[in-house]
Design a protein around this nucleic acid. Structure first.
Lengths: 102, 102
DNA sequence: AACTTATATGAACATATATTCATATATTGA
DNA sequence: TCAATATATGAATATATGTTCATATAAGTT
């Protein structure tokens, strides 16, 4: 009842939205994105700072890269990753603050 | 480097944030929450509108209830569910709009 | 070319999750 | 109390997901 302005979600929108939130639903990815919100880091730096295996970080960065949430630039053998979606990062930081003041 | 203002995430914050986004990462829950953004609906109404089994809806509503994202009021044998977290709903609708314009 | 460092990849595994089916519980009315 | 309706629950199943290990690739250096 009283459902003015309700618009069913089409498949594509639903997929994009669920994928976006799925990216933010894993603690490891959250920590990576949160770190990247403060700057640019290599894979090894991320692994060291967050006490994660290089492989774990690499796998998760691929996941985030596929969704275009992060990007990288190469410098020799080192890849420097940084965030690539202001909107999603904003939602994350907003929710972190919201969670912090419980 | 250049990580002024980076604050590691404590376990509890990380848990709350990941749980919140996990709730929004499933297409069925997204559809339910999106429907509830337009008003109050019984379990059966939700199931009919979204072409889902009653059991499926009930299970997901329990999930959302545990996270205090929805609430209900009873009227006889019927339970009318509605949303119970403006902040999370706002994030969802914001992301839906963002996904819709491509 | 061989060696080193940085990163990526694939397979294997354990765990988590969503849905379905069958059934239980709860409320109302006859 | 019995029947009818609305909702919840538990078990089972299939699928998805995150991490680890071992190894591959790629770039730079000697």
């Amino acid at each position: 009842m009283m459902d003015q302005r309700y618009e069913p979600l089409d498949e594509e929108t639903l997929f994009i939205v669920s994928q976006t939130f799925k990216a933010l639903s894993d603690p490891t990815r959250i920590r990576i994105l949160h770190l990247l919100s403060s700057g640019e880091f290599s894979v090894t730096e991320i692994a060291n700072r967050l006490s994660l295996l290089q492989s774990t970080v690499s796998h998760q960065l691929r996941f985030l890269k596929n969704l275009r949430l992060v990007k990288y630039r190469r410098e020799g053998t080192t890849l420097y990753y940084s965030h690539d979606d202001e909107h999603v990062l904003h939602i994350l930081e907003q929710t972190i603050r919201h969670a912090r003041d419980h």
